[in-house]
């Protein structure tokens, strides 16, 4: 390995390395496409997603299959599926990124604090985490959603409140193991402050784990939102989200499979895209894995 390849990385260095990983690049392209589609929905969507088209249903009131004027077909109310998916991307991205981001931040802070300080702080935080874990997540989400007036942001917040628990557990375990390592003892004998040890010497080691949980969390959050929508406490109809499109239509899966297939595929592609980017980032950020690219 050349000396230059081993030097510390700035943001441009990360980008330079990421660019050389075809899979990560593919993931980035997918993310850009999805975000672009969500941002440009008003211009890209062929129809208004809320309008129930008279010619969107057959004479017997059945939804139209893909093809023809409605590229991806129509739903039970005769609304254009493609348009709903494009607008739904906005909701699902906000839920997936924001809710998941908040959950990661909360989980990391709690796991890190508990794992590093142990003692009574750790005991209190982790028992609280266990309590949250024991509580059925869905029930909790419904309670929270019932207390607050459901809106997109409230739903994101509710999902974050439920989803931080697993992250906290995993980060806690990893932090406890790291805190017992010799290099942390060495830092202490150098007189390093707690903040320095936490942010310079423990957090960087948690990055791969946070990235993995972050990317895995995107699909679970999108699906949790769908469940909430289904129970009537999620994003309120007629606002489309990929999750609620699936749930609205799942009973007609036999007769109109496209209504479930396309939003389902969209969720899979979104999760895959973030997973690929996450994998690439993890490899690039880990100095011990470098040289294999």
């Amino acid at each position: 390995m050349t000396a230059a390849a081993a030097t510390a990385l700035g943001p441009e260095g990360v980008w330079r390395r990421l660019r050389r990983k075809p899979l990560a690049l593919f993931g980035i392209v997918l993310v850009v496409l999805i975000v672009g589609a969500a941002l440009l929905a008003p211009w890209l969507a062929p129809y208004d997603p809320f309008v129930q088209h008279f010619d969107g249903l057959t004479l017997f009131g059945e939804p139209l299959p893909p093809g023809g004027a409605y590229v991806l077909g129509t739903d039970l109310l005769g609304r254009d599926l493609l348009s709903r998916l494009l607008y739904g991307a906005r909701t699902s991205l906000i839920i997936g990124v924001v809710a998941n981001g908040i959950a990661l931040v909360i989980g990391t802070i709690i796991g890190l604090t508990a794992g590093f300080f142990q003692g009574w702080i750790g005991a209190v935080l982790m028992r609280f985490t266990d309590l949250m874990m024991a509580f059925p997540a869905l029930l909790l989400a419904i309670c929270l959603a019932a207390i607050f007036q459901p809106s997109l942001w409230i739903v994101a917040f509710v999902i974050a409140m439920v989803n931080w628990v697993q992250t906290a557990r995993v980060i806690y375990t990893e932090t406890s193991a790291l805190a017992a390592r010799d290099y942390i003892a060495a830092e202490r004998t150098l007189g390093a402050s707690t903040w320095r040890i936490l942010f310079k010497h423990i957090l960087p080691h948690l990055v791969p784990m946070i990235i993995v949980w972050g990317t895995l969390g995107i699909s679970t959050t999108v699906l949790l939102e769908a469940t909430l929508s289904y129970l009537g406490v999620g994003v309120q109809p007629p606002t489309p989200s990929w999750g609620n499109i699936i749930f609205e239509n799942q009973t007609y899966f036999q007769s109109a499979p496209w209504l479930v297939f396309f939003p389902g595929a969209a969720i899979v592609v979104l999760a895959l895209a973030f997973n690929l980017v996450g994998d690439g980032l993890r490899d690039v950020l880990d100095p011990t894995l470098r040289g294999s690219d």
Binding site: A6, T7, D182, Y183, A185, A186, T189, P204, H205
Partner: peptide, 18 residues
């Protein structure tokens, strides 16, 4: 005033810092 050198140097160094 005092510094320690541990047994296992790999464990005593932060693998993610130059």
């Amino acid at each position: 005033a005092t510094q320690i050198v541990f047994q296992d140097p790999m464990a005593a160094l932060d693998s993610r810092m130059t």
